[in-house]
Amino acid sequence: MAVVASREQALAVAAVPRVVPSHNGGGGHHDEPQRPAMNQLGLWLFFVSESFLFASLLVARFYLAGTSRGHVDQMLGLGITAVLLVSSLTAYLSEVSIAQGNRGAFLFYLLLTIVLGVAFAGGVAFEWSTAEFSRSEPYGTAFFTMTGLHASHVISGVAMLGLVYYLGLRGHFSAKDHWGVEAVVKYWHFVDVVWVFFYPALYLIGA
């Protein structure tokens, strides 16, 4: 019977009228001063984890194929690299704009980022369709896996940027409250960092 009492007690403590926890990823407990810092750290830890995944593929590329390389279109490689680099800048400008409350510029740069992201994915798709090597040879195995996994991150990034764009159009986000924008833009930069390593590994190193 006494245990019932303790359960009742437990519920009674919970039933005391007070701010109900929201567990809101964006805002969390309204009295949670650590929320922004925790969001930041969580996102960065996610990047740390992801970089191990990409590192494993980098290792596999050199383990399988040494420094040998299939024939790739250098201009196409440089082109999509440039596209992704520019998209990082536009994503950055988009974040800066919303941080200053400039919704017009925020949406414009965001849209530009999305277009460039789609262009990058299209470039990869074109590269795949014209590749002169097959996926059953060592370099091809590495090439298609790495570009494929990276492109899947680009596509998911574009989807999230699209969601942020939609929310931005509907009036969400402000200079003070734009964690959603910041997180997605950081993810986008991270995808760019991955390409910074994949581009030389797949296109430049070796012969």
């Binding site: 950081k186 991270f190 910074v196 390593f197 581009y199 030389p200």
Partner: peptide, 17 residues
């Protein structure tokens, strides 16, 4: 090439992220 890649990654981490 590796050093350039590290440099680029550092720039993105520092100035963009």
């Amino acid at each position: 090439l590796i050093i350039i890649a590290l440099f680029k990654a550092a720039v993105i981490f520092q100035f963009f992220m």
